[in-house]
Simulated scan of single mutants.
Amino acid sequence: MKVTFRTLFLLIVIFQFLSCNKSKTETAIKSSVSKDSIKESKLAVNNPVKEDFSFPVDSTLPVKIIQLETFHNDEIEENYDKKTWFGLFKNKNDYSLSETKVFFKRVNDPVIDDNEEDKTGWEVSASVKDTCVILIEKLPYFIDGNILSVKIPENIYPEESFKFNFKGIEYTLFATGKKKKESPDSDWIIVSDYKLYLRTVVDGKETKELLVAKKNFDDQMIRMIFGGDLDDDNKLDLIIDTASHYNASSPTLYLSKPAEKGKAIKPVGVFTTVGC
Rank of each mutant, 00 (worst) to 15 (best):
M1T: 11
K2Q: 10
K2A: 10
V3S: 12
R6L: 13
L11D: 01
F15L: 14
L18K: 07
N21C: 12
T25Q: 15
K30N: 14
S41P: 00
K42G: 00
V57L: 14
K64N: 13
L68G: 00
H72W: 06
D74H: 10
I76C: 01
E78P: 00
D81H: 13
T84V: 14
F86W: 11
F86I: 04
Y95Q: 05
V102F: 06
V107N: 07
V107Y: 05
D109C: 11
D118L: 06
T120A: 05
S127W: 01
L135W: 06
E137P: 04
E137T: 08
P140T: 07
P140A: 08
Y141L: 07
F142M: 11
S149Y: 08
V150C: 07
N155Y: 14
K163R: 12
K167F: 04
T172E: 15
A175V: 05
K180S: 14
E182Y: 10
S183E: 09
D193W: 04
V201T: 15
V201G: 00
D203R: 12
T207I: 10
K208H: 00
V212R: 04
K214F: 00
F217C: 07
Q220K: 15
M221D: 07
F226D: 01
D231Q: 06
D232L: 02
L236S: 04
D237G: 04
L238T: 05
Y246M: 12
A248L: 06
S250R: 13
L255E: 04
K257V: 10
A259Y: 06
A264P: 01
A264Q: 07
A264H: 03
I265A: 02
K266M: 14
V268M: 03
V270I: 13
T273S: 15
